[in-house]
């Protein structure tokens, strides 16, 4: 029994979604190999080899993998699938894109976004935007699984797995990468941040979101937003926390001017400590908040900023 984990990275750095996925893979109970696919990814492979519990790192380093096209990734992984009982990837936009393609080519089901491993063939996964949890048993000999990484702690460091190179797989030539427009930020990424401060429609404008920046800088936090704030055009889409955006589970989540629509709660309700600041005391966000402050955000946010300043943050 061996499990193959597909590493998530941006060519230079291994994303910590990988170490979390390794934790899920370890629970399935077999040896864990990590596959790093990319172009010029020695540093990523090195980092993957240090994850606890990884028996081997396999590297497919080729110019055709400079951008992760689903068609190319699936062809490579399917070619390697013979040696594995389970193929596991984080449920990032890359994993969600190519993994069902792998499953279909292997003629098996995909088990999407597992949040728990009951046994080697039985898994828990959220349905209805997390409003119910389904326990499913796979009848397939080979399992194709994506992992909701917020549900698993990152595997530790200290491993020293061997690194092995493999040749590139087929390049079906069906699609090509044209360009990317990534939001640049010095702050931590939403999905890995320990603290997140998010704004909702109550922020009233994109300019007002800058009020959150100063607090985010003091706390080393990422800045997020509700779908309402994104739809209103206050901030770009990649700020979105929620069922249709990013699912996060930081140590501290501060929701500012967010009413708490089901779709937003689905994306953040597993945070350890939730703070809500909203002037409407009936707002549903208060039903999940550990600490609720009924106040006008336009006075509370500058006050919070000042209080944190007093702590020397």
């Amino acid at each position: 029994m061996t499990t193959l984990v597909i590493a998530e990275h941006n060519t230079v750095k291994l994303n910590d979604a990988t170490a979390k996925t390794v934790t899920a893979a370890t629970k399935i109970g077999a040896d864990v190999h990590v596959l790093v696919v990319g172009s010029g990814v020695d540093a990523v492979a090195e980092a993957a080899s240090k994850i606890d519990g990884v028996a081997k790192v396999i590297v497919a380093d080729d110019a055709i993998y400079a951008h992760p096209l689903a068609e190319n990734l699936a062809a490579l992984v399917v070619g390697m699938a013979g040696s594995y009982d389970a193929i596991v990837s984080p449920a990032t936009t890359i994993g969600k894109n190519f993994m069902p393609r792998v499953a279909a080519l292997l003629d098996v089901a995909q088990i999407s976004e597992i949040q728990g491993v009951v046994s080697a063939d039985t898994f828990e996964r959220p349905i209805y935007a997390g409003n119910a949890v389904q326990t499913v048993k796979s009848k397939d000999a080979k399992k194709v699984i994506t992992v909701r990484t917020t549900a698993f702690a990152a595997a530790g460091q200290g491993g020293s797995a061997a690194i092995e190179k493999v040749a590139a797989g087929d390049q079906p030539g069906l699609s090509e990468w044209v360009s990317e427009n990534l939001t640049k930020s010095d702050r931590p990424e939403l999905t890995s941040a320990k603290i997140i401060i998010s704004g909702g429609r109550g922020m009233q404008s994109g300019d007002n979101f800058h009020m959150l920046d100063s607090i985010a800088d003091k706390l080393g936090a990422a800045v997020g937003a509700s779908r309402a704030a994104v739809d209103a055009g206050f901030v770009p889409n990649d700020y979105q926390v929620g069922q249709t955006g990013k699912v996060v589970a930081p140590e501290l989540y501060i929701a500012v001017g967010i009413s708490g629509a089901i779709q937003h709660l689905a994306g953040m309700k597993d945070s350890k400590v939730i703070v809500a600041i909203n002037k409407d005391e009936e707002a549903p966000i208060f039903q999940v908040a550990d600490f609720g402050l009924v106040a006008d955000l336009f006075t509370a946010v500058p006050e919070l900023d000042a209080e944190l300043g007093k702590l020397g943050l």
């Binding site: 409003n131 119910a132 389904q134 499913v136 796979s138 999940v288 609720g292």
Partner: peptide
């Protein structure tokens, strides 16, 4: 391919 063993409520988060 998949047998649904059960469907349950998610853990409820109590208001603070």
């Amino acid at each position: 391919h998949l047998e649904v063993l059960k469907v349950t409520e998610p853990p409820v988060r109590s208001a603070g």
